[in-house]
Amino acid sequence: MGNLIEVRNLQTQFFTQDGIVHAVNGINYDVAEGETVAIVGESGSGKSVGVMSLIRLIPEPPGKIVNGEVNFDGQDLLQLNEEELRQIRGNRIAMIFQDPMTSLNPVLTIGRQITEALELHLNMNREESRARAIELLELVGIPDAGARLDDYPHQFSGGMRQRVMIAMGLSCNPQLLIADEPTTALDVTIQAQIVDLVTRLQSELGMAIIWITHDLGVVAGLADRVLVMYAGFIVEEGPVDVIYGQPRHPYTLGLLRSIPRLDLGRQKRLIPIEGLPPDLLDPPQSCPFAPRCPFVIDKCLEENPPLMSIDAVRKSACWVDLSDVEIYDTSADEQVEAVA
């Protein structure tokens, strides 16, 4: 399958009173048609700024995309004018945000918010767009969709609002759906509904998805490929099963180790990642993970490792070879039966 989108050397900064925030520091990746790519990393690591830059939703000023190319279906999105971009946004590339309450307009009915996009992008008339809106709400599992069309967002629960956002995102049959932590504000049972819904819709409609999250568990069931971000860099990239089976960056390893797992014997003690992420106002020249890294060597302090290929499918930005490190040190685990 061909690449739908190719991101090259993307670099975005914010010029603030306190100085330059180095939010995204030259990242490279591709997303193939129909593929699901997850971007994981902790808050502030540049996940949102990274994807908002793709469709130029960065507030300018203070933000600025200072470098890079975003090739989408043969054109560089960063070179398009506002009008050309509008044709792509919400149409061929759709976006769903974390908090559906702030991204839905509180004074417009649910129905109106969906039909508006349809009328704008697909030139539908009132009746057509209304019929299609009902279809879309039914598709995302809103019961009694015809009647709920005239409700306002506050009359819907959090999970229903997120489903409306997905319906809106899908309304124009996008080729790429960007979902920025769409389930973070939701409960696990509702999250399971949404993940189930999106994977089902994807197999029916065939769009590619970029799914941003900080939850490694959600990624495992959803993504084909994973990008791990830290301090504005992609530090590891690869197919989901390979990354989870044998992480090759100490940060990925640290994340997997620090979360308790429901399916494993109870770990006696969690292994946290000590310390804090670096200040992006004053990023170090060294490897950004060095102050927290248990594997650090001298070279790490001298030179920030680029994202390097390890094999045909995966990349890691680290000077040290982790291929022999076990994720879960089972000897330290207290076995479940010992607790009785």
Binding site: A192, D215, V219, L262, D263
Partner: peptide, 17 residues
């Protein structure tokens, strides 16, 4: 509904939705 950070397990899991 709790996701488990292991793709092998997640692919096989039957969720109660």
């Amino acid at each position: 509904a709790v996701p488990i950070p292991d793709p092998e397990i997640e692919k096989k899991r039957q969720r109660i939705i």
